[in-house]
Computed example of a mutant assay.
Amino acid sequence: MTINKKDISIVVADDHPMLLKGLFDELIENGYNVVGQADNGMKALELILTLEPKLALLDIEMPLLSAFEVVKMAKDKLTETKFILLSYHKEEEYVLQAKALKINAYLLKEDSFFTIERCIDKVINEESFFSPHLKNTLLRNTSDKLKQFSQLTASEISILKRIAQSKSSKVIAEELGVSIRTIDNHRTNIIKKIELSKETNTLTNWALLNKKAISEL
């Protein structure tokens, strides 16, 4: 489905003035309806909630609120805005966190404006889009991890989040009002579902490594 560019309202946010201006100017020159721009996460969130744009293009690392925090808060307010993240980061932890938050797209700042336009078209048509500069192995790994997360029960996710905060089985048991044995049984089940080895501290180390994504589950 083709949508007139003038009907695509967009908020852009980046704390680098030149990058923000460059993106704003490119979008305007190519016929998009840019309704607001922000140089920090808090302002971006206010614009999204007030203007309710179809799209928000957000730099991941901004003052006051990160793009991840903006998306989470906006979604808590039931916004229908779709999100495209812009970043220099190619690391798995960032892409996994974006996918865990069900963010529509992830672009790299090295991507061309042609790629940005392809991405906008995909997202507007309810599809996801990830930068062609991201390795296929990375995208497969993050998809596999999300599938593993989806197998966990609500109780297991609750426990996994606490493990990612470096809490011991004893502390988790006290917080949840259950026995340590119950927590250890859950840990065993989590290890099986996400296919980890049974070595001591393997689950804790894995949870700490994926802490940001786990926090979004």
Rank of each mutant, 00 (worst) to 15 (best):
S128L: 10
N189W: 10
E117S: 13
L138I: 15
T2A: 13
D121C: 09
L152C: 05
T79H: 02
K122L: 08
K99C: 03
K135D: 13
N4W: 12
M1G: 14
L176P: 01
L146H: 01
Q151P: 11
N104T: 13
I10T: 08
G177T: 00
I191N: 10
T188C: 13
I60L: 02
K147R: 13
S155T: 07
L101M: 01
L208T: 02
K5L: 04
L108N: 04
E174V: 05
L208N: 04
F129D: 02
S155A: 13
N185R: 15
D59Q: 03
N141F: 08
T188Q: 15
I157A: 02
N125I: 07
I190A: 03
E93Y: 07
K170C: 09
T142Q: 10
I116Y: 11
A213W: 03
I48C: 10
D76E: 15
I116V: 14
T142Y: 08
L86I: 09
I60T: 04
D7S: 15
K43A: 06
L27N: 02
K161N: 02
N4R: 14
N4E: 12
K72C: 04
K145N: 12
L58D: 09
V178C: 02
H133A: 11
D14I: 02
I124L: 11
S166R: 15
L55R: 08
V34A: 00
A105L: 01
E61Y: 11
N30G: 11
L138V: 11
A74L: 06
C119Y: 09
L96D: 04
I48N: 05
A213Q: 05
N201L: 04
G22T: 10
L107V: 01
D59W: 06
V178L: 00
T115P: 09
F130R: 05
M62H: 02
T202W: 04
